[in-house]
Design a protein around this nucleic acid. Sequence first.
DNA 1: CTTGTAGTTTACTAAATAGTAAACAATTGA
DNA 2: TCAATTGTTTACTATTTAGTAAACTACAAG
Lengths: 204, 204
Amino acid sequence: MGRTSNAKELLLDAALDLIWERSYGVVTIDAICEKAGVKKGSFYYFFESKSALAVAALEADWNDCGKQKWDSLFSASIPPLDRIRNFFQHAYDSQLVLQKEHGQVLGCPCFSVGSETSTQDETIRLKVQEILQRQIRYFESAIRDGQADGSIATGDAASKAKCLFALFEGSLGQARIQNDLEFLRVLPETALSILGAARTSSAA
Amino acid sequence: MGRTSNAKELLLDAALDLIWERSYGVVTIDAICEKAGVKKGSFYYFFESKSALAVAALEADWNDCGKQKWDSLFSASIPPLDRIRNFFQHAYDSQLVLQKEHGQVLGCPCFSVGSETSTQDETIRLKVQEILQRQIRYFESAIRDGQADGSIATGDAASKAKCLFALFEGSLGQARIQNDLEFLRVLPETALSILGAARTSSAA
DNA sequence: CTTGTAGTTTACTAAATAGTAAACAATTGA
DNA sequence: TCAATTGTTTACTATTTAGTAAACTACAAG
């Protein structure tokens, strides 16, 4: 009972957009409220602080978008190597769309915010850590499946997954800094050759 | 003629320290002045803005520390593969020292600041871009030398260098976010196996 | 030793920002 | 319909912050 509202969702969306495009530190509560079309009083009705909003926004993004995307890209119905190739291809494609929309390469909000705030805000750090860990597990699982069917060389799957993920996030970061998606272009084949897949080529 | 001063250097050092430990956005001019023991009037005597200070601090750090370090780690007198192995080992060692000093993994200031500010501040973005590009060239040159003496597989050296650098920065970012240096532990061997070096092992 | 220059200090303004309190509005179930 | 509850709005305070102006200090060269 009582009044209904979508202000909370509007705030979550606006926060993620602004923080992704700009950065956590530079985005003010006023700016988030303005973008969301919500008054500051309402902001404080739903959230305790910018930090709490950021944590909620990252988690909401995973629940509402991220999880489905990763589930489908890493579906067990796809051959393991294809999952990985498709994932990197998808990363390139979606960054391209974002670049066209925003005029800039944006990279990964989770990693960017995490790196920015990790020494300052423990609750954000832990949430980012958690989400990134979930993502690494998709790699790990695909690698193990690939090792089982012989398409990926043997060796510690967890290590390989972390390595691939570091390569991925490092490339996204570079792409953001250089404002150039070329760094992501070659990732599908680079990733496969790192994994010791059959078809090896240039960047390995 | 006139009064002499080291305030400019004090400001450059304080700025790099604070921004590295915290982040660009969260560090105020007042905080930098306080850490440097310099009054704000003097700050504005030497610098136009926080942005200008950051650019100067990054460049000064390269000139006063970075360049010598990279020159010596990538000395032509060292076998190419050893240069790369030593570099990653050195990265681990120095991050360990920083972690003990600050109680946290700090990662790479250049990359962190670059990623944080790149969509907001073009002058910082360009300076970071320039410094990172210089670093990539050390990798590239070592890779080419390794290809010449047969210790590294053939293929586009520039691509391989970018790949290695992305892996490096991605690992530093992860280490900062997780506040855990284990990500850097295996980098020397991972890097070598990516390059197709003789001794291949776990993570490749 | 004095004069011009390089650097310092203080005290200030204006703006941005986080955060709050309390009156107000809408909705729903009893 | 009315009362309890949920959400909204406004107007406010206190603080932090960037940035400035002008008086002041130290030094080095002539």
